[in-house]
Write a protein that binds this DNA or RNA. Sequence first.
DNA 1: GATTAAATAT
DNA 2: CATATTTAAT
Length: 563
Amino acid sequence: MATMGGDRRQMMVDAAEDKFPEGLRVLVVDDDRVCLKVLEALLHRWKYLPTTVMDAKTALRMLMAGKQQFDLVITDVCMPDMDGFKLLELIRLEMDLPVIMLSVDCDKKVVMKGIDHGASDFMVKPVCAHELKNIWQHVQRWRNPKAIGHISDHDSDVQRVQPTTADKSKYSGNKRNVGDDSNENNESTHISSTHRKPRVTWTIELHNKFLEAINQIGLDRAVPKKVLELMNVDCLSRENIASHLQKYRLYLKRVNSNPSSDAYERRNSSYNMNNKGNLMHNHEHGRWSVSSGDTSSWSTNNYGATGHVASPMNIQSNFYMGSYLHDGRMPRYVGKQPSDARRFTGFGDPPVSLYNNIPNEIMLDEFPSCNYSNSYADLMRGKLMEISKGKTPSNLQSSFANRIVDGGRSSLVPPQESYAMSTGRLPLQNEMTPFISNTTSVGGIIEQMAPFNMASNTSSVGTMLNGSSTLDASRTSMKDTHVVNSERTTSMLHNLQPDDFVPLTQLLDGGDGASIVPMQEGTLEQQPLNDQLNEINAFSMDDMFSNMHMEDFTGDDAIVEEA
DNA sequence: GATTAAATAT
DNA sequence: CATATTTAAT
């Protein structure tokens, strides 16, 4: 990190050897003058170089100034202008420094709050000299988590709360997102010893990359390391991949072995498999999931709000290859929600066009036709109506675009995806200003979107994808994704994803023979290519309707109700 | 209170 | 590396 200069480094080296480092620059923040003085004196005694400040804002300014480089911050919790937690939060967000909290209050909650927010330690006032002696270890551990074990200090009644996991953090990885000013080469970035690694959110893009890699390597030969290499996403660690791979495999297993999990799917399997479509199906706990025969489609929000079709039909050993979704929840990534949200807000193309000549009325009627006249359907209908009339549904706000909301929890999203990221938990969920603030409406939006989507899906079957894609098609770039059938042709499938989605490339593979995918035959290939614009719609509608007719809906209803 | 994604441990 | 367990989130 920035604070580590040449001799700093040496210092750390010394520290690693357990040599007591001298001259660590400590910024002490406390509105209590006496405390400040005492701390200063004590720190001096241990050869630290303390700088004292009486308020958090000034402290922050000093820290931000950059000029002054500090190795460690000690801050009181209770301060008038800005409390220690806030300061801690900001520090976490903007820089990479260990912070020790100080408070007269040794209430467990307070202590935990500090720790949870990323404090390296929590000391209860009054602080004794010996407690300060080894604070350098925090610096060291912060910088190099694996180097040291425990901070040795036999504290009095000081509540040292240090997650055991802390010392165990291995692997560099740690990509601290925000403002990771850290320059140094990897190594330097450490993880807050006291913290869990930031949670990685597997966005659709990421997953697509993941799938690409898998496809390239072959499911059976895919190992985390290779996948990681192929993905070439630098914020991921091998562990992240391993974890995801594990989940993915479990998903595949489940899906393959337990067809019953989705009656609908079974019934339509043939369609499904070939299809281009993702079937929306079930969901658990009120969540919809998209199942597809294709790899890249996912629902973006918990309700399967978005469908993407992109599909490389590359088949992995089994048709399911791609579909990630798993139980209804897997794809809950919200990464691009914004786009989707935007899509529904009504700007851009008049929704009407989405349906390509099909009167809205019909659409509207058809969809809910699934006889449930439950509020959901109605709601949807309402929404759809609204939208189709070019209105922006009241509750859909565009402002929501570009926010990353992960059901309230924030996660790290690789920068390259240009998402705001947050540290594992630093960003207090409720006050995480910079990136995810004011999400209040977001939840609502998502909720609102759900019905809408369902509506489209409701159409039965699935369609989610289709329904959505239709929408997408109309307003998005219509990038084409080349899909190579195992066999020959490269059929062009429109990538219905919103522009920002990373299109799947690849696929040609032909992986295992299974790849049949005659699929598009019916629709796609036979479709007059020149239909260009309508192609998609046609295709979507086709599916939609065929599905609708194929099924009497009862099945779907059942599914729906199941929820 | 159950379920899950992702992290972490084995 | 695979698999199991834990954690933190809904």
